[in-house]
Design a protein around this nucleic acid. Structure first.
Lengths: 193, 193
DNA sequence: ACCTGAACACCGTTCAAGT
DNA sequence: ACCTGAACACCGTTCAAGT
């Protein structure tokens, strides 16, 4: 919508060119290392892989959560755009269920990032940063409610919590994906008007 | 049912009296410390509070998870007994939904124990130890399905996963309990025939 | 058979010195 | 303004010595 910065940022953007480059490198390294070793991976390993000193990592991201939060920001914009796409191309209830289903898959992909990432998805820790995604989802839900296909006494927070809950609970199940499918179907049955 | 040992035990029971006493003391201390400080509490603090050396803690419980698992064993027996009570005193669908609701509350209480405890509740890590609870729940579900009040294409694993998922996702929500209530109601709607 | 705690290793975090 | 890495602190884990 706006022509200004599209990425909300909790931390101030670095000023100097080398600092900005380090910022990016740290995020890339974090993605790689968290992906390989899980959310408790040594921060030193991330700094090493980014080719900077550990002190630099701390300067850019004062906590482990700050680093994970920053990684999450891109996802938000992607989700918002996707919701608008679906809104234009699919029926109200299909758009909503497809979008929710994709959020479930995203949650599974964030698996490695643990509780912090899940909380971000639920818009609790960083409400203003996460707002675009939340509002895009709320619009899809409202559309489905207006045509009477989804019950009116449910809000987008309910649905996102259920989606994240399904993602968390089926995470390390023996047959996680199939189980997640069944639970998601159950959820949709409960939500339909 | 059986008159033999009622507590399934992954570790061999200690032989000597002092060792058994230490075993109990460690469990008591673990409950206290985990309750106060969360699942990442220093194991040394638990040993200290139990009045034993850190080496003794490791001898009894070789991993943090082993300690949490042992704490969980009591809960299993409680859940089984409760299911039998409800089976005798409530209508099929009431018994099932009350039991599930209580499992949700238990999950919230296990909050402090993190992912390990949740997995135990889902009977994945220690299937044979968790079986009594699982089977008791399955019996309640079957009863409700026989009278046609709950859809037949759902099993107890689905329901326990949803319950745990709701517990996890509403854990640190601003208004966790109220949100959990709504999600639980949504789940029941999806499950009813 | 069981207990103890010192010893070692690893990682998080800070901060003085540098560019 | 930003970077570096040595230094410190904390905690997990093992194991030789003890009862």
């Amino acid at each position: 919508m706006a022509t200004s910065t599209t990425t909300p940022d909790a931390l101030p953007r670095p000023q100097r060119a080398d600092a900005r480059r380090n910022h990016e490198r740290l995020l890339d390294a974090a993605r790689a290392v968290f992906g390989e070793q899980g959310p408790d991976a040594p921060l030193e390993e991330i700094a090493r892989r980014a080719g900077v000193g550990i002190g630099t990592l701390y300067r850019h991201f004062p906590t482990r959560d700050a680093l994970i939060t920053a990684m999450f920001f891109e996802r938000i914009e992607k989700s918002r755009v996707r919701a608008e796409e679906l809104s234009a191309t699919a029926s109200p209830v299909d758009a909503l269920s497809t979008w929710l289903r994709e959020q479930l898959d995203e949650a599974a992909a964030l698996r490695g990032l643990g509780a912090t990432a899940m909380n971000l998805m639920l818009c609790e820790a960083e409400p203003q940063a996460c707002a675009p995604m939340r509002e895009a989802g709320a619009a899809l839900l409202a559309r489905a409610q207006v045509v009477g296909q989804v019950r009116g006494d449910t809000d987008i927070d309910d649905l996102l919590h259920l989606v994240v809950g399904i993602g968390l609970a089926t995470d390390d199940a023996t047959d996680g994906p199939a189980l997640a499918d069944r639970l998601f179907a159950l959820m949709l049955d409960g939500v339909r008007a």
